[in-house]
């Protein structure tokens, strides 16, 4: 701001004389440089003010085929649908592709298969869903895609998404079950089609510690806990001081039971299904012990870098 005064003076002297008096006390270079750096800092500040989200590379999840139940297979399908499969990028309410989560997919599949336009080879919903994933251009739903062009949908078993047969099966199970239907897809048994990723398929290990439970289940997205400063849900760093173990357990298993005042009722109610007992207990222990900043480190195994920055961590831990 101090620049303005001096520049004004100079502007006047310019019009008056052929020779310009030397600039003021501050050299031009200093003024210009500080102006430019100021502008850069404004841009940097804006970038730092926006929500800070990291995009992690998808991790290969190992499935214990022996312990797999249909319920967990469906849950796996839902997680894949919304996560690694990136299906919701297009299958949402924006009209880019059919909104699968809203449509009753069993009915929809039956409708499509009986339509005159249908040129594919599927006979039932299971084969139709699979066909849609591995050969999306076989049948493009009227009103989507462009005439004459292949479907804009990527082939799901090819890169960059590259889901395995088991994973696609899970998605089919999810699509069939999500509106109350009975999945027809068979549970994968052992001796799966060996994909390079699942070569060392081993039973899923429960998370090693409470921190891993927190990050694995996405708690940090809404709650202030660990490194996360999120404020969409209640602060968990001192939850132990506010709630008992029982209350904490209840809030995880059945979030809708008690909604903390001033927060929206948005916490997913799926953790009762998706969390292992051991994980749940670790988490409750950890949270009950979180009574303020000092108790943070308690109950956690040696710090091992944030999993966000080191995707390879998980695999390394598994090998222990």
């Amino acid at each position: 701001m101090t620049n303005t005064a001096t520049t004004n003076n100079q502007a006047h002297s310019v019009r008056d004389a052929d020779f310009i008096s030397p600039p003021g006390k501050i050299p031009v270079i200093a003024k210009v440089l500080s102006f430019m750096i100021l502008v850069v800092l404004v841009f940097t500040g804006i970038a730092n003010l926006l929500p800070q989200v990291e995009g992690q590379a998808p991790k290969d999840v190992k499935v214990d085929l022996g312990a797999l139940t249909m319920d967990s297979y469906i849950a796996m399908g839902e997680a894949l649908f919304k996560g690694k499969g990136t299906c919701t990028l297009c299958h949402n309410n924006l009209g880019r592709a059919p909104d699968i989560l809203v449509l009753n997919m069993e009915d929809t599949a039956a409708e499509r298969l009986s339509s005159d336009d249908y040129k594919g080879e599927s006979k039932d919903s299971e084969s139709y869903f699979l066909e849609s994933m591995i050969a999306p251009s076989k049948y493009v739903v009227p009103g989507y895609g462009k005439e004459g062009d292949p479907s804009p949908m990527p082939t799901i078993d090819k890169a960059p998404i590259g889901l395995t047969k088991i994973e696609m099966g899970a998605i089919i199970a999810f699509l069939q079950a999500k509106d109350g239907g009975e999945p027809t897809v068979a549970l994968p048994t052992d001796a799966p089609v060996i994909e390079e990723k699942s070569i060392n398929a081993e039973p899923p290990k429960p998370a090693a510690n409470a921190e891993e439970v927190l990050t694995k289940n996405g708690c940090t997205a809404c709650h202030a806990v660990l490194e996360s400063p999120a404020t969409l849900g209640p602060d968990l760093r001192n939850i132990g001081a506010r709630s008992s173990r029982e209350e904490i357990r209840e809030s995880i298993i059945n979030p809708a039971a008690v909604i903390a005042e001033g927060y929206p009722p948005i916490m997913p109610a799926t953790f009762a299904d998706s969390m292992m007992v051991k994980e749940l207990e670790m988490l409750v222990d950890f949270l009950a012990a979180s009574k303020g900043d000092a108790s943070q480190a308690e109950d956690s195994s040696p710090a091992e870098g944030s999993p966000q920055t080191q995707p390879s961590n998980e695999t390394e831990k598994k090998g222990e």
């Binding site: 989200v53 992690q56 919701t88 924006l94 996405g218 997205a221 948005i266």
Partner: peptide
């Protein structure tokens, strides 16, 4: 002005924080 882009908590939870369904 960021408008419809803000991730709702539910979306973050369902998407694992890496993708946003809105165009």
């Amino acid at each position: 002005t960021p408008h419809t882009l803000i991730l709702s908590a539910k979306e973050i939870a369902t998407l694992g924080g890496s993708h946003h369904p809105l165009l």
